[in-house]
Design a binder for these strands. Structure first.
Length: 671
DNA sequence: GATGTCTCAAGATA
DNA sequence: CTATCTTGAGACAT
């Protein structure tokens, strides 16, 4: 909320009187509501406002629309659908509002089963006959009562929302930033949605490889880009971009093989062709040496029997041959470094570390005495840092090297479980204007609900397959969060567990209640005042923080630069305008000021192409409803990338400020 | 073209 | 926490 502050083109300067030195910032401890405010919470008085909950009832002339579209239909089939009163017909909800119809088991991904082929439309005939007539491989049979869900309509809706339905051949061959981003978004949203649908039906984690399912269906529809192999950078992908699945590398053409570490292409240079390496993945599968960040000693492929682990000599063929040829051609080779995902010990994160050149190769004996090929790669100079940033952060964390420019090690004074440091390595400003750090939203009085809502009895936390849990029922019978805390769908409203629930604070349905899960820092930006970023990588859909502050019941000071106003017009993520044009007019009357007190969210700057979005969350207990604004990552966010969200459009055309987000679709101003 | 083999996955299970 | 099992997509050889 600092953007534009002090950067007014009219020449006004920063008000130094409002900028305090380090010491007062130590006072940023949580301040709780005064006794009188407290009492209004415990004994609610008649609310002066009209009660409008996102699910209705709505005053006459008001349509429930974005971000308060109709509740999704229950997805689980074979169960009595819990129709909520006030349910309105489904409208477009970015591909997630459609009810899902059950089709017989095995029909997904196997077009020969039960004659249910044909629901994959738009498919080239290249792969459709592959399994024709062949004997079916024995498959692990899903539990008896599991009904396979036809997820294709979900993908179709997503593709429509993100304008990918008629992706032309040129874009499939060579992408750009926009196409790459949309494809990744659809892939991840689709994958997350399938994870959510599968989990209660197959058990935790599902084991159904939703990543493979998602990529398969997208590839069948030709929804991929940069399919032409190329040497060097890939359009739309920047050095430092991160990925959470090998399939993501595949659908955007950064690294085509699904498992293999070496991607190569054949190139006609003279009269005959020769294979050249274009991309490698170093992810710990072999005994590579990661070097100091600019150097990489890469091991060739092969030499080990996958089934029994038996070793033999590597051969100079396939990827190894391509790498050998590339030594002599001295072509650029993309390097993707795989690292362990701290937030998910079984998972990996893939960092695009830019272009390298192979300096040389040799053969050596490994521990078992077999010959392996080694390739020495050196990073091409002049590229933005990527993997090196990760190494630096690790050193800060380990305390080996201290972070430059730290003003305060923890500006929350312990109010959050993770420390948030205050950093300025661009100028001598000592800190933001004084405020009180409060980790959550302060209500003077809650919204009232028309009927009392029941708390759950889930002693060990709400479980995805518990159909009796009232909190899960309120979320259309699907837990909104994955086991990793990733939001699985875009919804009008998320019902989290409230104070009347028996579940513990670490319940999966209380994701927005525990404060930030990643290591944050508030830092001085070059031209936008203070900003917020994370030391940790953030997966798309991850909870970031809520917007803490004081709920404003009666208007607010227009000079308040720390307002969150849900009554503004917000674009429904990056989905197209016309798709939900009707749907973005009725706002929710929640206005928060973080001027005097707030959390890290008050430092998030505006961007017209943001990497964070907000989502309305409600925690109910009895007749009280507490609405909160929770922020989630729109996409995978690499460490130290600034976190931004769209401040929305103000209906009254006042106090617009010049936008400095630098996005190619910048509106030029913000409110 | 069907089939087999290989590959720096990703989950589930033990 | 790691070891191992399981199911795999796509590239290439047979």
């Amino acid at each position: 909320m600092e953007q534009g502050f002090g950067s007014d083109p009219s020449g006004s300067t920063i008000d130094k009187t409002r900028v305090l030195d380090v010491k007062p910032l130590r006072c940023l401890s949580p301040v709780f509501p005064s006794a009188s405010e407290m009492s209004s919470i415990t004994t609610p008085q008649p609310s002066p406002f009209v009660c409008i909950t996102p699910t209705g009832p709505f005053p006459s002339g008001v349509t429930p629309i974005f971000p308060f579209l109709s509740p999704d239909e229950p997805v689980r089939m074979g169960e009595s659908s819990q129709q909520t009163p006030n349910q309105v017909p489904n409208q477009g909800t970015f591909g997630f509002g459609q009810p899902i119809s059950p089709i017989p088991v095995n029909s997904f991904g196997n077009q020969t089963a039960n004659g249910s082929s044909g629901h994959v439309n738009n498919v080239g005939d290249s792969g459709s006959g592959k399994k024709k007539g062949g004997p079916k491989k024995p498959r692990k049979v899903p539990p008896e009562n599991v009904v396979e869900v036809d997820v294709e309509p979900l993908l179709n809706q997503l593709l429509m929302s993100f304008k990918l339905v008629d992706l032309d051949q040129a874009k499939k061959a060579d992408g750009d930033k926009e196409v790459v981003r949309r494809i990744l978004l659809v892939f991840d949203l689709f994958r997350r949605r399938m994870t959510q649908i599968d989990e209660p039906r197959y058990g935790a984690g599902s084991g159904r490889r939703p990543d493979l399912k998602a990529s398969k269906m997208m590839m069948l529809k030709g929804m991929r880009t940069n399919q032409t192999k190329r040497i060097g950078n890939v359009p739309g992908i920047e050095v430092g971009d991160i990925f959470f699945f090998r399939m993501e590398l595949c659908v955007v053409g950064l690294h085509a093989p699904t498992m293999s570490g070496i991607d190569y292409m054949s190139l006609k240079l003279t009269k005959d062709e020769e294979p050249l390496a274009v991309s490698i993945v170093s992810a710990g599968g072999y005994d590579d040496d990661g070097g100091d960040g600019d150097l990489l000693i890469y091991t060739g492929q092969g030499g080990v029997q996958r089934k029994d682990g038996q070793m033999f000599d590597q051969k100079l063929e396939k990827g190894n041959l391509a790498l050998e040829k590339s030594v002599h051609r001295a072509n650029d080779v993309r390097v993707i470094r795989g690292v362990k995902d701290v937030a998910n010990p079984t998972g990996k994160i893939y960092i695009f570390d830019g272009l390298y050149k192979i300096q040389g190769s040799w053969e050596e004996k490994n521990k078992t005495g077999c010959n392996v090929f080694k390739y020495k790669l050196l990073r091409v100079p002049g590229q933005p840092e990527a993997f090196k940033v990760w190494k630096s952060i690790q050193q800060w964390r380990d305390g080996v090297v201290s972070r430059v420019g730290v003003i305060l090690p923890d500006l929350t004074s312990g109010a959050e479980s993770q420390a948030v440091c205050l950093v300025n390595d661009v100028d001598d400003e000592k800190g933001p204007a004084y405020f009180t750090y409060i980790p959550s939203l302060k209500y003077s009085k809650p919204f009232l609900t028309p009927r009392p809502s029941l708390g759950c009895q889930c002693i060990g936390g709400c479980q995805p397959d518990d159909t009796n849990c009232p909190c899960i029922q309120r979320n259309q019978c699907l837990l909104p969060y994955s086991s990793l805390g990733v939001l699985m769908t875009y919804k009008n409203l998320i019902h989290e567990c409230g104070s009347a629930c028996s579940c513990p604070p670490n319940c999966r349905n209380r994701m927005s209640q525990g404060g930030p899960k990643v290591r944050m820092e508030v830092f001085k930006t070059k031209n936008k005042g203070w900003g917020l970023r994370s030391w940790d990588p953030i997966r798309g859909g991850c909870f970031i923080c809520e917007y803490a502050g004081e709920v404003r019941d009666i208007g607010y000071d227009r000079d308040d630069n720390y307002i969150f106003d849900a009554t503004r017009i917000y674009e429904p993520l990056e989905a197209v305008h016309d798709y939900n044009d009707e749907s973005r007019k009725v706002p929710f009357p929640l206005v928060i000021s973080a001027k005097n007190g707030g959390n890290i969210a008050r430092f998030m700057n505006h961007s017209c192409s943001p990497n964070v979005y907000w989502q309305l969350v409600v925690r109910e207990s009895n007749n009280e409803a507490y609405y909160h604004i929770a922020f989630f990552a729109t996409r995978h966010i690499p460490p130290l990338q600034e976190l931004t969200f769209d401040y929305g459009m103000d209906k009254a055309d006042h106090r617009r400020k010049k936008c400095l987000c630098g996005s190619f679709k910048c509106r030029g101003y913000f409110y």
